[in-house]
Design a protein around this nucleic acid. Structure first.
Lengths: 310, 310
DNA sequence: TATAATCCATCGATACGATTCATGGATAAG
DNA sequence: CTTATCCATGAATCGTATCGATGGATTATA
């Protein structure tokens, strides 16, 4: 049964298929592809034979995509990108490349990685435009619809067309104003204090906060801010405590004191509670693009340079 | 430059290219493809035009692949698999499917996941043959050369053509014979004891052992065994201590006592030291195969069922 | 309801391209 | 030097993708 001659499919056919899908019309696709309408119709029939599915069925004088066609569209786009990667024209030469890259990242990972990434990458490239957009709660759609090329997040989206790779591990520490209080060394002391944490309205809470929640441990969170940069003013001159990735302590929170989380608090918590693992994620589409692969490599190198320790 | 008509490439051309590469000969490829030799030669020329690279150059009366051709071969194989995924014949029906799956996994992950996976998956399938092979130090070649379909490991290989996904997190605990000693509650007590650990000759040491090593902490390891199943005889009736993933305590080491790692030991260690994160990894080739995707989904479900806690 | 407009499928003609057979130049082996 | 084998090329053939034109079907408009 499977014996449809799938090997007969070529890039032109894929492009035609995707165009028909996007236009929702054979005639419109023909116009966009600068072909005769009948040619598109015939080509579509050929593709129907090759994949063994009607792909589009008539409904009135329009056509609607079958379920199978819906499934095929992203796959077809993927294959077209793969075909492009076959050409020899892709000899990627950093020294002559003028690249534009859009990265979605929230405050912590942005400030930690991207400045160093930029200086490193830009030094080797003819030109680099780096667009950083807020990721919010990162979704696979951002990558699928090419709203960004890469996404940096501790909770990257999953999906069969999404690839993710670990960048670095960090550990949560308590940060506080050393002039106003001392480090909480036990769970009791920790829970007795007043806390400030980061809860972005459109993103997931920190895995640390979620883990405590899951344990039924409720600390006294008196202030929540939308991002890490908002913590400092609340810590300064107060006895508030924040639990943040330790690397942040080397950035915006340099002026404060840091201490490890109370050991007895962690003993009860699930593994990885005190660890924040940062990933980068991208779409399969960009997998074989040598320029993007190079950029990802640079970012990875920056993360590696920092080492896994705080 | 980029203006080679890469869309003109079709599956037949890719297959021809790969065949010529594998045979190292135009004539031999023609025989295997059941075509005339000149047809292959012409087709090869067509492909040369389309991708803008000689692909094979004459050397004596043989031909040798160019660098670019070498790079293209895996990509071509990938695209052929992608094309196969276009056909409608792939409506995957578990109830009628007779599958054969080869998984590379070492002892811990094998015993923990695969029995439950097998019963779960086999119950839904017409037939399932599960081959489990030892992974040793897992390499991307095992996946590339299709020696296995999936690999389960805490240290999955990396590569642009390898996809990995987290299965579950576990935490290291101390395991010992409760009749002979008590739990080490401090780093000092921990280091005063005698230890047994797992070091497989052809695999990486455990991340826990590596982390301690990295800190310059040398505990007194008096016995090493090649896999987890070898631990029990050495623990039984002795004062030896082993640090193993806590889930193992529920399997082979049920008879022993378990205790968390000393907190002060972990405080100095890098984040994630006490966490073992288990991944599955597979080759891009199997990404769009619905049967394999289904099997991976089942395995994931089993891992999820166990929850992230021990 | 009749008419016009638009859509997609089909038909015959045409041009392009893929394959075949036959041949030639090059290399290596006998 | 001869022979066998390899790959490339040329001419001829066959298949097929495209075109323009046409027809059947559906929807919008008067």
């Amino acid at each position: 049964m499977g014996s449809f001659d799938h090997l007969g499919v070529d890039g032109h056919l894929l492009r035609l298929f995707v165009t028909v899908y996007e236009e929702g019309s054979v005639s419109a696709a023909a116009r966009r592809l600068d072909m005769a309408q009948s040619a598109v119709s015939h080509a579509l029939n050929r593709l129907r034979r090759l994949v063994g599915d009607p792909l589009f069925v008539k409904s009135g004088r329009r056509i609607v995509a079958t379920q199978h066609a819906e499934r095929l569209v992203p796959q077809a786009r993927l294959l077209m990108d793969g075909l492009k990667a076959l050409t020899a024209g892709d000899g990627f030469d950093p020294a002559q490349a003028r690249l534009s890259w859009t990265v979605a990242a929230n405050d912590f990972q942005r400030d930690l990685l991207l400045p160093r990434f930029y200086t490193r990458a830009a030094a080797q490239l003819a030109d680099l435009r780096l667009q950083v957009i807020p990721s919010g709660r990162p979704t696979s759609e951002m990558l699928r619809e090419a709203r960004c090329d890469l996404l940096i997040s501790p909770a990257p989206p999953e999906g069969l067309d999404i690839i993710q790779k670990r960048l670095f591990d960090d550990r949560y520490v308590c940060v506080f104003d050393g002039a106003r209080r001392v480090a909480p060394t036990s769970a009791a002391a920790f829970l007795a204090g007043r806390h400030v944490t980061v809860v972005h309205p459109s993103a997931d809470p920190l895995n640390f906060d979620k883990a405590l929640e899951g344990l039924g441990i409720h600390r006294d969170v008196v202030v929540t801010v939308a991002n890490f940069s908002g913590l400092a003013p609340f810590l300064r001159g107060t006895d508030l405590v924040a639990c943040v990735p330790s690397r942040l302590h080397g950035l915006e929170l340099r002026e404060f004191q840091a201490a490890p989380l109370p050991a007895d608090l962690l003993a009860a918590a699930p593994p990885g509670t005190d660890t924040l693992r940062m990933y980068m994620a991208w779409h399969l589409r960009g997998q074989h693009d040598p320029a993007q692969a190079w950029l990802r490599g640079q970012l990875e190198a920056v993360a590696r340079e920092m080492g896994d320790d705080a």
